[in-house]
Simulated scan of single mutants.
Amino acid sequence: MRASLVQLRVDAVESPADRRHRAAALVRTRTGDDLVVLPESWAAGAWNHDSWERDAEPIDGPTAQAMSDAAREAGVWLHAGTLVERGPDGTLYNTALVFDPSGVRRGLYRKIHRYGFDTGEAALMGAGDQVVTVPTGSATLGLATCYDLRFPELFRALLDAGADVLTVPAAWPAGRLAHLTLFARTRAVEEQCFLLACVAVGEHGGVRQAGHSMIVTPWGDVLAEAADEEEIVTADLDLAEVARVRKELPVLRDRVMGIPVPAHRR
């Protein structure tokens, strides 16, 4: 599987419409890739709390339509990052969308863990309650978003649901880049999966974004990593490595917490 992370610049000076146009144009250049991933809340801005009410969209709004068209034109599976969704009852959600190469939406994940400690996302958005995986034919994507990285139980649930490639769009603050790197590599090692973290760059809402999007192997090695400017990083994922790692280091079969304990262990 050839995967690309489109590390978008998200700055306060650019409108959501301009970012949609630029993101779609970048996705269309990825013809020949199998999977393309975008960052978190790149259209509205993940830290632009004051503008979320104005910029929120329905699930089939302009960002979804632009990404569907781009996926179809490039012929790729597209994890379109997340958007600020206005749900049917008016509740705002941080929602990830996945499109297949024909532009059909195949996945929708509303972020479960909301960041902000009673402010920002935690105060203004509803929480998702579904563990979501998306089979692509060659891999099964496990969907998580940014702050979710700090909650290992979600990733264990994604593993149990069959994920072998974990996708994590993010708008991670630059001041905590070390945490991003630590968590991304740890989750890949824990679940013995590939992990793709696509992180925004730029500054909006007074927060500078970390960048350093990365593709991590099931061994925890960083296969490819961006710097801190807008760029695209690409790597070929040998999906057979997931089975090889799990056979060589079969730690997952020794789990005794959270699953029924076999009789011979009692």
Rank of each mutant, 00 (worst) to 15 (best):
M1E: 08
R2T: 15
V6E: 05
L8V: 03
R9H: 05
V10H: 05
A12H: 12
A12D: 15
D18W: 09
R20W: 07
R22F: 13
T31E: 13
G32E: 02
V36Y: 04
P39E: 11
W47A: 14
N48P: 05
E53T: 11
P62Y: 03
E73H: 03
V76C: 08
L78F: 05
H79Y: 13
A80K: 03
G81H: 00
T82N: 09
V84L: 01
G90F: 02
A96Q: 07
V98Y: 09
V104N: 15
R106Q: 14
G107F: 04
Y109G: 03
Y109W: 14
Y109T: 06
R110T: 02
F117H: 15
G120F: 11
L124P: 06
A127L: 13
G128H: 12
V132L: 13
T133L: 14
P135L: 04
G137P: 00
A139N: 07
A144E: 01
A144P: 12
D148L: 04
F151Y: 13
P152C: 08
E153K: 10
L154R: 13
L158M: 08
A163F: 08
V168M: 03
W172T: 12
R176N: 15
L182A: 14
L182P: 10
R187F: 04
A188I: 03
Q192S: 12
L195R: 09
V199G: 09
V201F: 06
G206A: 13
V207C: 02
A210R: 07
A210H: 07
H212Y: 11
V216S: 01
P218G: 00
G220W: 04
V222N: 00
L223V: 01
V233D: 06
T234D: 00
T234P: 08
R244G: 04
R244V: 02
L249N: 12
R253Q: 07
R253W: 05
R255I: 01
R255N: 03
V256L: 06
G258V: 01
G258F: 11
G258Q: 09
P260A: 15
P262M: 07
P262S: 00
H264Q: 09
H264C: 12
